[in-house]
Structures are given as C-alpha cells and as structure tokens.
C-alpha cells in the first residue's frame, strides 16, 4: 500500500524531495514548519514583518539547498538551524542600523518603548498584557540566552535538539537556559513578586 505524502515523516518527505524533486513534498514541509518557525523567530526578533521575511528566507534556503541536508540529522533541527542563523543575522543587521542612525542624526532619538513592567499588578494579571510584557522582557534578554530559552520553553524542544541547532555543548545549553530564565525572571520581578 502506497503511503500518501502527507502521511510521511519529515525525513521521508525531504528524501522524496531530494531524490525526485517532488514539489509537493516541499510544500508539505513548508506547511508543517511555517508556524513553529514563525513563532520561534517572532519570539526571538519581536517584529512580525521581519519574522515573516526571515521565515520566507528560511524556506527559500531550504528550497535552494535541499541537498545540503544529510539524512543522519533530524529535519526539524536542520530547518531550525537555518532559521536561527537568519534571525541572528537580522538582529545584527538591526543593531548596525540603530548604531548608524544614532551616529548620523542627532534629532532622531531611539524610540521610547512603553515599559509595562511597571504597571499595577492587577493590570498585569490580564493574560494579554502579561504576554506582551513577557515578550518585551524576552527581547531584553541577551540574544545568546534568548535563543535557547525560546527553543526550550516556548518551542518545547529537547536539550539535545537545542544543542544540535545551536551547535553548543549540552552543558552549555543547559546553563544558558538557566541563565536566560534567571535574567527573564529578574526583568519580570513585578509579575513574579509572590
């Protein structure tokens, strides 16, 4: 009995795409990973438009460099690695842009972001606002810690998978996650008072 493409695993699909250049297999993989990648990149960058661009670039890179995937690795880690690298590049580009704009124009000031961390606790109890506060606090965490915290606590990936994606040792991943959580907790001390 011939399996339908949608029933195939990620690894089977990428193999199908690699061997037979089946565009349908590619489309199924895009469908499966567009949302998780969007979520990951959004939590890392904090910008929806930039995040869409990064995920698009990720998918195009996947389309163009399908042969660089090796079957011994998990497809999810491979695609997450591409997305993470592109997101980090985007972050670097933004930093450069910010420095450039500050250097060039004295009138332009860096935009003031409303700090909702200092809102009244009763207000911050509201889940929507809380989510927003957490996202803003997350963006203040160092990118090296933020990446692993997002992968672990938001994307629910295992330590081993994170280690593969980031190329870090397992111990480093664990310590970075811990440090990231502590940093985040300090930033959200108003919420987690009790």
């Amino acid at each position: 009995m011939v399996k339908r493409l949608s029933d195939l695993t990620d690894e089977e699909l990428i193999k199908e795409y690699q061997d037979n250049n089946t565009l349908e297999a590619y489309e199924i993989l895009v469908k499966r990973y567009k949302d998780p990648l969007m979520n990951f990149v959004y939590r890392f960058l904090g910008d929806r438009d930039a995040c869409t661009d990064v995920v698009q670039e990720t998918m195009i890179k996947f389309y163009l460099n399908k042969d660089s995937y090796r079957s011994f690795a998990k497809f999810s880690t491979w695609i997450y690695t591409i997305a993470a690298n592109l997101a980090k590049n985007e972050l670097k580009r933004r930093k450069r842009r910010v420095i450039f704009s500050i250097d060039n124009s004295d009138d332009e000031k860096s935009p003031q972001i409303e700090d909702k961390m200092f809102l009244a606790p009763d207000k911050s109890a509201d889940s929507e606002i809380k989510s927003e506060i957490i996202q803003k606090a997350l963006l203040k965490v160092k990118p090296v810690y933020r990446e692993v915290v997002v992968l672990r606590d938001i994307q629910d990936l295992s330590y081993e998978e994170i280690s593969e994606i980031t190329g870090l040792a397992l111990g480093t991943v664990k310590s970075r996650i811990n440090r990231g959580r502590i940093q985040l907790q300090k930033l959200l001390k108003n919420i987690y008072k009790e």
């Binding site: 949302d35 889940s127 989510s131 606590d153 959200l188 987690y192």
Partner: peptide, 12 residues
Amino acid sequence: LIADLKKLPKVE
C-alpha cells in the same frame, strides 16, 4: 515563568 512562557500565544 516557564508555564507562562509555554502559555504565550502561538504566532502563526
């Protein structure tokens, strides 16, 4: 904190 992070709305 971890629970709240997991509860964050999924961006699509």
